[in-house]
């Protein structure tokens, strides 16, 4: 158990043939599989003698009045509850992590929604990160033609560029650039034959800050808007600690009004306490904010990255600043970092 006494859940996603299974196999071999359960949707491929592998057939239930991200993965609810029962009855050793490998065309957000909203699971499992694999050989075409791939990249906390032994160096750097354009906060690992598999290891404590993003990614990128005109990524910085109640009012209202066009929000917020608050929103799904005990040594910087569709970033910045000033931070200024 790693996160508030709950079992860490790592979601491993990526398009068909992008190297998810290779990465998972290397990770399980290195870990010896102790305390790790794996949920996959295709049997046979993992090839590791691992008694905690469960196969599921992805089964989503769209909630009435909900958008696409608000669908419940019934298959996962059932499987995770079974694992919990087995562990609690002593039939399984204590679990510390569950890796959920999604199908190639799955959207990872319903998995997060399911973990956040199921009345039993939310007390026992905590989303640790979304890891997405991207095949460097086919990245350009897939990003262009497959909306599923774009969704996966936007949902990613860690992105692993794979097949780099087969792809020319330019293709690898182009893949990195395209990921940056869609999701500047994803931490990118370039992997060859499944190395870099430790991205699947859940981060704890202050390392969570590193795991959710990197301040280095917030550099202005002149080409950022050129390929995906409908998707904008912008980073906001703050001149003073934020007022937390006012932030909650603002973000709740924004997601209610503009939810389908707010694809991702990530960042570290200074709200005047010793450590930052980790914010992580994937579409409508707001991860419970985490309060870290302190700031990472190399990143004492309060920021929020917004990935939106068709919303002028200047309006987000202006709106957040106005709500903060109306809510008790009259001197706070919000600036665009990128």
């Amino acid at each position: 158990m790693t996160l508030d006494g709950r079992r860490a859940v790592t979601v491993l996603s990526g398009f068909l043939g992008s190297g998810k299974t290779t990465l998972l196999r290397r990770y399980l071999s290195a870990q010896g599989g102790a305390g790790i359960a794996v949920i996959i949707n295709e049997f046979g491929a993992v090839g590791v003698d691992h008694h905690l592998i469960r196969m599921v057939e992805e089964r989503s239930v769209l909630l009435q009045g909900g958008c696409v991200c608000c669908s419940r993965r019934e298959d996962l609810v059932q499987t995770l509850r079974e694992l919990l029962d087995l562990e609690q009855s002593g039939a399984l050793p204590p679990l510390r992590q569950v890796v959920i490998e999604t199908s190639g065309i799955a959207d990872p957000v319903p998995v997060l929604f399911t973990l956040a909203t199921d009345p039993v699971l939310k007390h026992h499992f905590a989303p640790a990160s979304v890891v997405v694999t991207l095949d460097a050989l086919n990245a350009a075409t897939q990003i262009e033609r497959q909306p599923e791939v774009r969704k996966q990249i936007i949902a990613a906390d860690r992105l692993v560029v794979t097949k780099t032994d087969l792809a020319p160096r330019e293709a690898v750097s182009r893949s990195r650039m395209r990921v940056r354009q869609l999701n500047p906060t994803a931490r990118i690992t370039v992997s060859c034959l499944g190395d870099g598999f430790d991205v699947l290891e859940p981060a704890i404590g202050i390392d969570r800050a590193e795991a959710i993003g990197q301040a280095g990614a917030l550099q202005p990128d002149a080409d950022a808007a050129s390929l995906h005109k409908d998707v904008q990524a912008t980073a906001l910085g703050f001149s003073a600690p934020l007022d937390w109640p006012a932030f909650g009012v603002w973000l709740g209202m924004l997601l209610q009004a503009r939810g389908p066009d707010v694809l991702r929000i990530k960042g570290l917020l200074d709200i005047g306490d010793a450590g930052p608050v980790v914010m992580n929103v994937a579409q409508h799904v707001v991860h419970p904010p985490e309060h870290l005990p302190g700031w990472p040594a190399d990143a004492h910087r309060s920021y929020l990255v917004f990935i939106t569709r068709g919303i002028d970033p200047a309006r987000i910045s202006e709106s957040l600043e106005t709500f903060q000033r109306a809510g008790g931070r009259p001197d706070l200024s919000v600036t665009r970092l990128s």
Binding site: W244, P245, G248, V286, P289, H291
Partner: peptide, 9 residues
């Protein structure tokens, strides 16, 4: 609601 959780244990 996520915004109403007490943040400081």
């Amino acid at each position: 609601h996520w915004s109403e959780r007490l943040l400081d244990p």
